[in-house]
């Protein structure tokens, strides 16, 4: 049973609370944008021969966009949820008829909106601020963004369900996040990585987001990315099932 009245209100409050947290906004929404601006400043987007005649931003833009999804999903949402569990905020909700599923849905929807917003800002800035050419179709790219966001939010809730404290969530977030950012190609392009590193990267889910975004941005259709879609879809389904089973208020 979905509690629509509660859900609508809770989504709005969740987003407001998130936007009132300057540090969280900085590390999740603004960092990828700042990375884009810094790289644009240092490297520019001139065609480079090692990158097959494309500019640094042409190659990396989709990685910065993927970063938004990775950071919120692996660190942002689990840390916030663990903090709420630890401080007893979730317990306060438990004293009401609010269902766990409604709470999770509101948090997922709110963070989904934030992910889409963050990705959009990165793409718009790349396209119009640095002239990174867009060859794809908007609806197709949007589908790729939605799928990736949903998959990472399900991972976020699996983590949030099994990690007991906010401190542990921070540790796990950092331990998973930094290798993931580097391996996935979100910061350093896959093209310049050695073969062995790329083999490891195949086990990092964010890699598929980077590849999917890059492909869709450069004009591929969804059918050319069945592998990415299957992996992210699989992550989504397994994640939802696990989170629904594992989530606890306290």
């Amino acid at each position: 049973m979905l509690q629509t009245r509660a859900l609508g209100k809770l989504v709005v409050v969740q987003v407001k609370l998130y936007l009132r947290e300057p540090i969280a906004v900085f590390f999740t929404l603004l960092m990828p944008v700042m990375l884009l601006v810094m790289m644009g400043f240092i490297l520019g987007n001139e065609p480079v021969s090692e990158l097959g005649g494309r500019g640094h931003l042409d190659v990396n833009l989709s990685g910065y966009a993927a970063l938004v999804i990775g950071i919120l999903g692996i660190a942002g949402v689990p840390i916030e949820t663990a903090t709420r569990r630890e401080t007893g905020v979730l317990r306060r909700f438990r004293a009401t008829p609010l269902r766990p599923l409604t709470y999770i849905a509101s948090d997922v929807l709110g963070n989904f909106a934030m992910m889409v917003l963050g990705v959009t800002v990165v793409f718009l800035l790349g396209r119009f601020g640095y002239g990174v050419r867009f060859h794809g179709s908007l609806p197709t790219l949007a589908l790729g963004v939605f799928l990736s966001a949903a998959a990472f939010l399900s991972v976020a809730y699996v983590l949030a369900s099994i990690i007991p404290t906010s401190r542990a969530a921070m540790v796990v977030g950092n331990v998973l996040l930094y290798p993931m950012l580097v391996l996935s190609g979100a910061v350093v392009p896959q093209q310049v990585m050695p073969e062995t590193v790329r083999n490891v990267a195949r086990f990092v889910p964010l890699t598929y987001v980077v590849t999917l975004f890059g492909g869709l941005w450069s004009g591929h259709g969804l059918s050319e990315h069945l592998r990415e879609i299957l992996v992210l879809g699989g992550v989504l389904i397994v994640g939802v099932a696990l989170a629904a089973w594992l989530f606890r208020w306290e």
Binding site: V13, L17, T87, G88, V89, R91, R92, A95, P97
Partner: peptide, 17 residues
Amino acid sequence: AERIGIQFQVDALPPRI
């Protein structure tokens, strides 16, 4: 839960709400 009200001995809300 619809018909009872609960005030906990120790309670919490998000700080910025």
